[in-house]
Simulated assay, not measured.
Amino acid sequence: MMEKPTVYHIPVCPFSQRLEILLELKGQRDAVSFQVVDITRPRDPELLEKTRGTTALPVLETPEGRIIKESLVILNYLDEALPGPLLRRSDPLEHAVENMLVGKEGSFTTAGYLLVMNQVQKQRGKMTDKLIALYAELDDFLRFHNPHGVFLFEDFGLAETVFTPIFMRFWFLEYYEAFELPRRAEFDRVSVWREACLNHPAAQQVGREEIVKLYYDYALGAGNGALPEGRSRSSFAFEPHWRERPWPPKEKYGKPASDEALGLV
């Protein structure tokens, strides 16, 4: 049997979910071996040696031991290397258009994560306005290139695979920041796109409860397995399983919940 590439990843990581969506769309769910990395513990020296000291995940290791980093690079590699229809558009102009939309993902993701991690209440308004403005940019792009459609093109494709995991992670903004898009016409097109992305059958690897519970520490300003002050267990801990824990408190600017209140001990 031919050896599979290995992807080292963090549970519930949006950048790893992109790869899972790709595999689902291509009918190649078993073509890659996923190896979970516990971010609440120091990195395995063997993994650090493979990655030449970098800690960002996911990372793909080919059967020959070659290392590929950055989720979009891995996504494109798997799209080209695995059997099945290409996720990206085959027409060069259409591929350029989808890449222009993909290029907007970085600032969009950053704005959402900065908002959930913000600890200064009076900065909420400014940060919320920034994210809403970026949603408006997405709406404008979609209206220009496919005003009456659902996705960027006729089907769920590369841009949707890139953005859908971020839309899902932003459930933490709905929960911890009471964030919602304004109900105005200028957000109608991006709202249709977002809803179709969230409901696509190939993108159901995670759910709202899992994201809200695991990302509680992000809402306290502690990302990537870091411990908030006064805590001894990360909300990203594997045990107890997230399903066995209570929902965290929605109020992120008040007194933070203890390990006990979060069901972590």
Rank of each mutant, 00 (worst) to 15 (best):
M1G: 07
M2F: 04
T6P: 08
V7G: 06
I10F: 04
C13M: 09
S16L: 08
Q17T: 12
R18W: 06
L19T: 11
E20I: 10
L22Q: 04
L25R: 06
A31K: 01
A31R: 09
A31E: 09
Q35P: 01
V36R: 05
D38Q: 12
T40N: 07
T40P: 06
D44M: 12
P45N: 01
E46K: 12
L47Y: 10
T55V: 15
A56I: 04
A56R: 14
P58F: 14
E64N: 07
V73A: 14
L78V: 09
G84P: 05
L86W: 07
L87I: 07
R88T: 12
L93C: 07
L93R: 11
E94K: 00
M100Y: 06
L101Q: 03
K104C: 07
K104Q: 02
E105R: 03
F108I: 00
A111C: 11
A111L: 00
L115D: 05
M117S: 14
V120Y: 13
Q121T: 13
Q121P: 07
M127R: 14
T128D: 12
D129A: 14
K130E: 15
K130S: 03
L131V: 00
Y135L: 01
A136H: 04
L142G: 11
R143H: 00
N146I: 02
G149A: 06
F153S: 10
F153W: 08
F153D: 13
E154Q: 06
E154W: 03
D155H: 10
G157M: 13
L158H: 10
E160R: 09
T161C: 15
T161Y: 11
F167I: 11
M168E: 11
F170C: 13
F172K: 00
F172A: 13
L173P: 12
Y175L: 06
Y176H: 05
A178G: 09
P182E: 00
P182Y: 02
R184K: 08
A185L: 10
D188V: 00
D188I: 05
V192K: 08
R194G: 03
N199K: 15
H200L: 09
P201H: 01
A202E: 12
A203P: 14
G207T: 05
V212K: 02
L214C: 12
L214Q: 09
L214N: 10
Y215H: 11
A219P: 05
L220N: 09
G221W: 07
N224V: 03
N224P: 02
G225I: 06
G225M: 07
A226P: 07
L227Y: 06
P228M: 01
S232H: 14
R233T: 03
S234R: 03
P240K: 04
W242R: 02
E251D: 15
Y253D: 09
G254K: 09
P256Y: 02
P256S: 05
E260K: 08
L262S: 09
L264A: 04
